[in-house]
Nucleic acid binder design. Structure first.
Lengths: 204, 186
DNA sequence: AGCTTACTTTGCAAAGC
DNA sequence: GCTTTAAAAAGTAAGCT
């Protein structure tokens, strides 16, 4: 009886320690990513929900914590790419993606596909581009998405190409390499998306 | 005039069977030219047939998994070749081992481009997985028939998880109906 | 700038770690 | 959960010329 009691305390303490660890990891990663406090709070709520629904079983605490943060960024409209999240996590990108899909499904988060436009302000300011370029990039994304060019394309690559095109159109040219570096995509991807978008805009 | 269902092509059939006889895979690996056996890697011995092209995983228990065949007939043909090869090695093989189809992978073309973003919302986010950062296809789990459909922006699709030949046909007709009802079939 | 190769996703069985 | 097999879809990536 006494042993059972001690075991309960031990598991309760362990569980408490695990939760504290997860929350501090979310905090650490959120700081490294530079996301606002509100997003960390949303991530904490998602993590606690996953914990209450026993979704951690068979998965790493860090993996679930990272996925919760990735989901929270999306839910709050300031997405980070899986690449970016993986850079501040000790969990491989592949596992983050897989765990995100799992908790997203189990918790019924029903997050809409990431909108490329949501990357524009962050990428553009990292490149030192003006509001005018951002507005142009947003317009390019809207027009080309309406013409069906977005289906199946990576949101970061789509945003990167639009920013590259907008920088040319507004005489604030950035090289494909510079844009590729902040968006973490290859120049080849920017080139491919750029060609399609320019055509969709009626330029050439 | 060409209905999407007419574009269905079976790409891969997975089936399992058993010869009702335990096997010494080490010996079999020596006696079967072209056999790959790496027990440290995987417990099954891999044997490939040329015509029809297929790959078989042969296990110590005598159970066999056949993959890569383009039709159910090809599965039977390929396994027949393997059964005869084993008999040729004086290994007793059941007269007519039961062959069970476990999965059929098919491809098809809906003939229209698809707006996957709109489709993800229209088909219901709870039944859909669409993460273009990770994979360009939209994953849709259908209940009847119970199959998984991968939909691409080009209108090309993949149907998998079905065990019967007509599952793909039923699934294609159903998905076309659902997409059309959403007004997303241009 | 291409071209080639390779990896991402789905489904399934097998035996064993 | 992983390991291996097969095949399609289309996007992305890396290596080589």
């Amino acid at each position: 009886r006494l042993r059972k009691w001690q075991e309960r305390i031990r598991t309760k303490d362990a569980g408490e320690r695990n939760l504290q660890f997860a929350l501090s990891e979310i905090d650490r990663m959120a700081s490294a990513l530079g996301v606002p406090r509100s997003v960390r709070e949303v991530a904490s709520v998602i993590y606690r929900r996953a914990l209450n629904e026993d979704l951690i079983r068979g998965r790493s605490i860090e993996g679930v914590a990272t996925s919760a943060l990735y989901a929270a960024c999306r839910q709050e409209g300031i997405p980070r790419s899986l690449d970016e999240v993986a850079e501040v996590s000790r969990v491989p990108q592949k596992e983050i993606g897989r765990t995100y899909r799992y908790i997203s499904q189990e918790l019924g988060l029903e997050l809409k596909p990431v909108d490329p436009k949501q990357f524009v302000p962050r990428f553009a300011s990292a490149l030192g581009l003006s509001e005018e370029v951002q507005a142009k990039a947003t317009e390019i994304i809207d027009v080309s998405a309406e013409q069906g060019l977005l289906s199946g394309k990576s949101p970061t690559g789509f945003a990167a190409a639009a920013i590259y095109a907008a920088s040319l159109l507004c005489n604030e040219k950035k090289t494909q390499r510079e844009v590729a570096d902040v968006a973490q995509v290859t120049e080849v991807t920017i080139r491919n998306r750029y060609q399609e978008q320019i055509e969709a805009m009626g330029f050439r | 005039m060409s209905a999407p269902a007419d574009s269905i092509e079976i790409q891969n059939v997975v089936a399992s069977t058993g010869i009702g006889q335990e096997l010494d895979l080490e010996a079999l690996a020596d006696d079967l030219p072209g056999a790959d056996f790496n027990p440290d890697n995987f417990p099954g011995l891999v044997y490939r047939t040329q015509d029809p092209k297929a790959a078989a995983l042969i296990f110590r228990s005598g159970k066999i998994v056949c993959t890569g065949a383009k039709s159910i007939d090809d599965v039977h043909e390929a396994l027949g070749i393997i059964f005869d090869k084993l008999r040729g090695l004086s290994i007793p093989v059941d007269e007519n081992p039961e062959i069970t189809v476990q999965n059929i992978v098919s491809s098809a073309d809906l003939g229209h481009n698809l707006n996957l973003n709109a489709l993800a919302i229209g088909l219901g986010l709870e039944d859909v997985e669409y993460e273009p950062e990770q994979f360009p296809g939209l994953v849709y789990r259908m209940d009847e028939p119970e199959v998984v459909i991968l939909l691409f922006g080009s209108g090309k699709i993949v149907i998998t998880g079905g065990k019967r030949t007509d599952d793909a046909e039923t699934a294609v007709e159903e998905i076309v109906k659902r997409i059309d009802n959403l007004g997303l079939l241009d």
